[in-house]
Protein backbone atom coordinates (compact mmCIF):
# COMPACT_ATOMS: atom_id res chain seq x y z
CA UNK A 1 0.00 0.00 0.00
CA UNK A 2 1.36 3.40 -1.10
CA UNK A 3 5.06 2.86 -0.71
CA UNK A 4 6.94 2.86 2.57
CA UNK A 5 5.14 3.74 5.76
CA UNK A 6 6.42 6.52 7.99
CA UNK A 7 8.38 5.32 10.99
CA UNK A 8 6.23 7.12 13.55
CA UNK A 9 3.08 5.48 12.17
CA UNK A 10 4.76 2.08 12.43
CA UNK A 11 5.89 2.81 15.97
CA UNK A 12 2.36 3.78 16.91
CA UNK A 13 0.72 0.68 15.46
CA UNK A 14 3.38 -1.99 16.05
CA UNK A 15 5.22 -0.50 19.01
CA UNK A 16 2.95 -1.36 21.92
CA UNK A 17 2.33 -5.01 21.06
CA UNK A 18 5.92 -5.68 20.02
CA UNK A 19 7.15 -4.04 23.21
CA UNK A 20 4.96 -6.37 25.27
CA UNK A 21 5.97 -9.46 23.29
CA UNK A 22 9.63 -8.46 23.44
CA UNK A 23 9.61 -7.72 27.18
CA UNK A 24 7.46 -10.64 28.28
CA UNK A 25 8.45 -13.28 25.77
CA UNK A 26 11.67 -12.84 23.78
CA UNK A 27 13.72 -11.21 26.51
CA UNK A 28 12.56 -13.71 29.17
CA UNK A 29 13.47 -16.61 26.87
CA UNK A 30 17.03 -15.27 26.71
CA UNK A 31 17.03 -14.50 30.43
CA UNK A 32 15.85 -18.04 31.15
CA UNK A 33 18.67 -19.43 29.04
CA UNK A 34 21.15 -17.37 31.06
CA UNK A 35 19.51 -18.38 34.35
CA UNK A 36 19.79 -22.03 33.40
CA UNK A 37 23.59 -21.60 33.49
CA UNK A 38 23.52 -20.25 37.07
CA UNK A 39 22.82 -21.65 40.52
CA UNK A 40 20.16 -19.00 41.22
CA UNK A 41 18.24 -20.31 44.24
CA UNK A 42 16.33 -19.16 47.32
CA UNK A 43 19.42 -17.50 48.85
CA UNK A 44 20.10 -15.54 45.68
CA UNK A 45 16.47 -14.43 45.74
CA UNK A 46 17.27 -12.42 48.86
CA UNK A 47 20.73 -11.31 47.83
CA UNK A 48 21.78 -11.35 44.18
CA UNK A 49 25.47 -11.58 45.19
CA UNK A 50 25.00 -15.30 45.74
CA UNK A 51 24.37 -16.02 42.05
CA UNK A 52 27.17 -17.98 40.46
CA UNK A 53 27.74 -19.00 36.88
CA UNK A 54 27.89 -22.79 36.78
CA UNK A 55 28.08 -23.50 33.04
CA UNK A 56 26.13 -26.55 31.97
CA UNK A 57 26.13 -28.05 35.47
CA UNK A 58 22.34 -27.82 35.81
CA UNK A 59 21.92 -29.82 32.62
CA UNK A 60 24.47 -32.41 33.72
CA UNK A 61 22.69 -32.69 37.07
CA UNK A 62 19.37 -33.14 35.25
CA UNK A 63 20.72 -36.07 33.26
CA UNK A 64 21.57 -37.82 36.54
CA UNK A 65 18.35 -36.83 38.30
CA UNK A 66 16.04 -39.87 38.53
CA UNK A 67 13.03 -37.61 39.25
CA UNK A 68 13.64 -35.76 36.01
CA UNK A 69 13.77 -39.01 34.04
CA UNK A 70 10.60 -40.18 35.78
CA UNK A 71 8.87 -36.97 34.75
CA UNK A 72 10.12 -37.36 31.16
CA UNK A 73 8.96 -40.97 31.05
CA UNK A 74 5.51 -40.05 32.42
CA UNK A 75 5.15 -37.14 30.01
CA UNK A 76 6.07 -39.35 27.05
CA UNK A 77 3.54 -41.93 28.22
CA UNK A 78 0.90 -39.20 28.28
CA UNK A 79 1.91 -37.80 24.86
CA UNK A 80 2.48 -41.07 23.00
CA UNK A 81 -0.66 -42.82 24.25
CA UNK A 82 -2.95 -39.84 24.84
CA UNK A 83 -2.01 -37.91 21.71
CA UNK A 84 -2.80 -40.55 19.07
CA UNK A 85 -5.87 -41.67 21.04
CA UNK A 86 -7.15 -38.10 21.12
CA UNK A 87 -6.53 -37.60 17.37
CA UNK A 88 -8.25 -40.93 16.60
CA UNK A 89 -11.32 -40.06 18.68
CA UNK A 90 -11.46 -36.62 17.03
CA UNK A 91 -11.32 -38.17 13.57
CA UNK A 92 -13.90 -40.82 14.46
CA UNK A 93 -16.39 -38.32 15.83
CA UNK A 94 -15.75 -35.97 12.88
CA UNK A 95 -16.56 -38.81 10.46
CA UNK A 96 -19.72 -39.61 12.45
CA UNK A 97 -20.93 -36.01 12.48
CA UNK A 98 -20.07 -35.61 8.80
CA UNK A 99 -22.15 -38.65 7.84
CA UNK A 100 -25.36 -38.00 5.93
CA UNK A 101 -27.10 -40.62 8.03
CA UNK A 102 -26.77 -38.77 11.33
CA UNK A 103 -29.47 -36.41 12.55
CA UNK A 104 -29.27 -33.31 14.80
CA UNK A 105 -25.62 -32.68 13.92
CA UNK A 106 -25.56 -29.14 15.29
CA UNK A 107 -26.76 -30.25 18.72
CA UNK A 108 -24.25 -33.09 18.94
CA UNK A 109 -21.41 -30.90 17.76
CA UNK A 110 -22.05 -28.42 20.57
CA UNK A 111 -22.38 -31.24 23.12
CA UNK A 112 -19.10 -32.87 22.04
CA UNK A 113 -17.42 -29.49 22.13
CA UNK A 114 -18.61 -28.50 25.61
CA UNK A 115 -15.71 -30.06 27.57
CA UNK A 116 -13.23 -28.04 25.47
CA UNK A 117 -14.44 -24.66 26.72
CA UNK A 118 -14.79 -25.64 30.37
CA UNK A 119 -12.18 -24.83 32.99
CA UNK A 120 -9.56 -27.58 33.25
CA UNK A 121 -9.23 -27.21 37.02
CA UNK A 122 -12.98 -27.63 37.52
CA UNK A 123 -12.98 -30.63 35.18
CA UNK A 124 -10.11 -32.18 37.14
CA UNK A 125 -12.06 -31.64 40.36
CA UNK A 126 -15.14 -33.33 38.89
CA UNK A 127 -13.18 -36.28 37.54
CA UNK A 128 -11.40 -36.79 40.81
CA UNK A 129 -14.77 -37.75 42.22
CA UNK A 130 -15.84 -39.64 39.10
CA UNK A 131 -12.75 -41.82 39.62
CA UNK A 132 -13.65 -42.49 43.28
CA UNK A 133 -13.00 -46.21 43.84
CA UNK A 134 -16.26 -46.88 45.71
CA UNK A 135 -18.74 -44.20 44.70
CA UNK A 136 -17.41 -42.99 41.36
CA UNK A 137 -19.39 -43.13 38.13
CA UNK A 138 -16.63 -44.86 36.15
CA UNK A 139 -16.36 -47.84 38.45
CA UNK A 140 -20.14 -48.08 38.58
CA UNK A 141 -20.36 -48.24 34.77
CA UNK A 142 -17.53 -50.80 34.70
CA UNK A 143 -19.25 -52.91 37.35
CA UNK A 144 -22.22 -53.24 34.97
CA UNK A 145 -19.82 -55.12 32.70
CA UNK A 146 -18.52 -57.21 35.58
CA UNK A 147 -15.24 -55.33 35.99
CA UNK A 148 -14.19 -55.01 39.61
CA UNK A 149 -13.22 -51.92 41.58
CA UNK A 150 -10.22 -50.05 40.19
CA UNK A 151 -8.42 -47.49 42.33
CA UNK A 152 -7.87 -45.17 39.38
CA UNK A 153 -5.96 -42.37 41.05
CA UNK A 154 -4.44 -44.42 43.86
CA UNK A 155 -2.84 -47.20 41.84
CA UNK A 156 0.36 -46.25 39.93
CA UNK A 157 -0.67 -48.66 37.19
CA UNK A 158 -3.95 -46.84 36.50
CA UNK A 159 -3.17 -43.22 37.41
CA UNK A 160 -1.75 -42.25 34.01
CA UNK A 161 -4.48 -44.03 32.01
CA UNK A 162 -6.96 -42.13 34.20
CA UNK A 163 -5.40 -38.78 33.29
CA UNK A 164 -5.28 -39.77 29.61
CA UNK A 165 -8.96 -40.78 29.56
CA UNK A 166 -9.93 -37.47 31.12
CA UNK A 167 -7.70 -35.46 28.78
CA UNK A 168 -9.13 -37.16 25.69
CA UNK A 169 -12.66 -36.52 26.95
CA UNK A 170 -11.76 -32.87 27.53
CA UNK A 171 -9.95 -32.23 24.23
CA UNK A 172 -11.33 -34.33 21.40
CA UNK A 173 -13.98 -31.77 20.45
CA UNK A 174 -11.40 -29.18 19.44
CA UNK A 175 -9.67 -31.31 16.82
CA UNK A 176 -13.02 -32.75 15.77
CA UNK A 177 -14.05 -29.27 14.56
CA UNK A 178 -10.87 -28.96 12.48
CA UNK A 179 -11.35 -32.45 11.04
CA UNK A 180 -14.97 -31.67 10.09
CA UNK A 181 -13.76 -28.60 8.20
CA UNK A 182 -11.11 -30.75 6.49
CA UNK A 183 -13.67 -33.41 5.54
CA UNK A 184 -15.99 -30.82 4.03
CA UNK A 185 -13.16 -29.56 1.82
CA UNK A 186 -12.73 -32.95 0.11
CA UNK A 187 -14.38 -32.72 -3.33
CA UNK A 188 -17.50 -34.89 -3.50
CA UNK A 189 -16.73 -36.12 -7.05
CA UNK A 190 -13.66 -38.02 -5.78
CA UNK A 191 -16.02 -40.30 -3.85
CA UNK A 192 -18.49 -40.51 -6.73
CA UNK A 193 -15.79 -41.61 -9.14
CA UNK A 194 -14.52 -44.18 -6.65
CA UNK A 195 -17.93 -45.70 -6.00
CA UNK A 196 -18.62 -45.97 -9.73
CA UNK A 197 -15.40 -47.98 -9.95
CA UNK A 198 -16.75 -50.19 -7.19
CA UNK A 199 -14.48 -49.15 -4.31
CA UNK A 200 -15.85 -50.14 -0.91
CA UNK A 201 -16.33 -47.50 1.78
CA UNK A 202 -13.26 -48.72 3.64
CA UNK A 203 -11.20 -48.48 0.43
CA UNK A 204 -12.53 -44.96 -0.12
CA UNK A 205 -11.56 -44.02 3.43
CA UNK A 206 -8.01 -45.33 2.95
CA UNK A 207 -7.39 -44.04 -0.56
CA UNK A 208 -9.35 -40.76 -0.56
CA UNK A 209 -10.25 -39.51 2.93
CA UNK A 210 -6.94 -40.14 4.71
CA UNK A 211 -4.64 -38.75 1.98
CA UNK A 212 -6.87 -35.71 1.49
CA UNK A 213 -6.83 -35.10 5.24
CA UNK A 214 -3.05 -35.45 5.53
CA UNK A 215 -2.23 -31.72 5.96
CA UNK A 216 -5.04 -31.37 8.52
CA UNK A 217 -3.82 -34.45 10.38
CA UNK A 218 -0.26 -33.14 10.48
CA UNK A 219 -1.41 -29.81 11.89
CA UNK A 220 -3.62 -31.50 14.48
CA UNK A 221 -0.91 -33.97 15.49
CA UNK A 222 1.62 -31.19 16.02
CA UNK A 223 -0.62 -28.91 18.10
CA UNK A 224 -1.94 -31.86 20.10
CA UNK A 225 1.58 -33.07 20.80
CA UNK A 226 2.78 -29.62 21.86
CA UNK A 227 -0.23 -29.21 24.15
CA UNK A 228 0.10 -32.69 25.67
CA UNK A 229 3.79 -32.17 26.44
CA UNK A 230 2.72 -29.28 28.69
CA UNK A 231 0.70 -31.52 31.01
CA UNK A 232 0.29 -29.76 34.35
CA UNK A 233 -3.14 -28.94 35.83
CA UNK A 234 -4.48 -32.52 35.68
CA UNK A 235 -1.79 -34.07 37.89
CA UNK A 236 -1.54 -30.91 40.03
CA UNK A 237 -5.22 -31.07 41.00
CA UNK A 238 -5.92 -34.80 40.83
CA UNK A 239 -2.81 -36.62 42.01
CA UNK A 240 -0.12 -34.07 42.96
CA UNK A 241 2.15 -36.14 40.74
CA UNK A 242 1.51 -39.34 42.70
CA UNK A 243 1.01 -42.11 43.51
CA UNK A 244 4.73 -42.98 43.64
CA UNK A 245 5.47 -40.15 41.16
CA UNK A 246 3.55 -42.04 38.49
CA UNK A 247 1.93 -38.83 37.19
CA UNK A 248 4.77 -36.39 37.81
CA UNK A 249 5.04 -34.46 34.52
CA UNK A 250 7.94 -32.35 33.28
CA UNK A 251 6.04 -29.08 33.80
CA UNK A 252 4.88 -30.17 37.25
CA UNK A 253 8.48 -30.99 38.17
CA UNK A 254 9.62 -27.64 36.76
CA UNK A 255 6.93 -25.90 38.82
CA UNK A 256 7.91 -27.72 42.01
CA UNK A 257 11.61 -27.05 41.58
CA UNK A 258 11.10 -23.41 40.58
CA UNK A 259 8.16 -22.14 42.53
CA UNK A 260 8.09 -24.43 45.55
CA UNK A 261 11.80 -24.89 46.28
CA UNK A 262 13.00 -21.79 44.40
CA UNK A 263 15.77 -23.68 42.60
CA UNK A 264 15.44 -21.13 39.84
CA UNK A 265 18.52 -22.02 37.80
CA UNK A 266 17.69 -25.71 37.91
CA UNK A 267 14.03 -25.13 37.08
CA UNK A 268 14.80 -23.06 33.97
CA UNK A 269 17.06 -25.85 32.72
CA UNK A 270 14.07 -28.21 33.02
CA UNK A 271 12.00 -25.73 31.01
CA UNK A 272 14.63 -25.68 28.27
CA UNK A 273 14.77 -29.46 28.16
CA UNK A 274 11.00 -29.38 27.62
CA UNK A 275 11.47 -26.91 24.77
CA UNK A 276 14.13 -29.14 23.25
CA UNK A 277 11.89 -32.21 23.48
CA UNK A 278 8.99 -30.34 21.86
CA UNK A 279 11.25 -29.02 19.10
CA UNK A 280 12.61 -32.48 18.29
CA UNK A 281 9.09 -33.96 18.42
CA UNK A 282 7.82 -31.36 15.95
CA UNK A 283 10.73 -31.92 13.55
CA UNK A 284 10.15 -35.69 13.67
CA UNK A 285 6.46 -35.24 12.86
CA UNK A 286 7.24 -33.04 9.85
CA UNK A 287 9.85 -35.55 8.64
CA UNK A 288 7.45 -38.47 8.98
CA UNK A 289 4.85 -36.54 7.04
CA UNK A 290 7.29 -35.79 4.22
CA UNK A 291 8.27 -39.41 3.87
CA UNK A 292 4.75 -40.74 3.55
Amino acid sequence: MFGKTKINVLLLFLGPSLLIIFSFFFLPVLAALLLSFTDYDIYALGNADYIRFVGINNYLKLLEDPMFWTSVKNTFYFVLVGGPLSVAVSLGTALLLNSKLVKLKGLFRVTYFLPVVTTLVAVAVIWRFIYHPRFGLINYVLSLFGIGQIDWLGDPLYSMPALILMAVWKNFGYNMIIFIAGLQNIPEDLYEAASIEGASEWQQFISITLPQLAPTTLFISVITMIGYFQLFAEPYVMTQGGPLSSTLSVVLYMYQEGFRWWNIGYSTSIAFMLFLIILIGTIIQFRLQKES
Partner: peptide
Protein backbone atom coordinates in the same frame (compact mmCIF):
# COMPACT_ATOMS: atom_id res chain seq x y z
CA UNK B 1 8.72 -18.52 18.06
CA UNK B 2 5.24 -19.84 18.90
CA UNK B 3 6.84 -23.25 19.27
CA UNK B 4 8.64 -22.10 22.44
CA UNK B 5 6.48 -23.27 25.33
CA UNK B 6 5.32 -20.46 27.61
CA UNK B 7 6.71 -22.26 30.66
CA UNK B 8 10.24 -21.27 29.59
CA UNK B 9 9.55 -17.59 30.29
CA UNK B 10 7.74 -18.04 33.60
CA UNK B 11 10.60 -17.67 36.06
CA UNK B 12 12.21 -14.58 34.46
CA UNK B 13 8.82 -12.89 34.05
CA UNK B 14 7.94 -13.73 37.64
CA UNK B 15 11.22 -12.26 38.90
Amino acid sequence: SMIIPGQVTMLPVFL
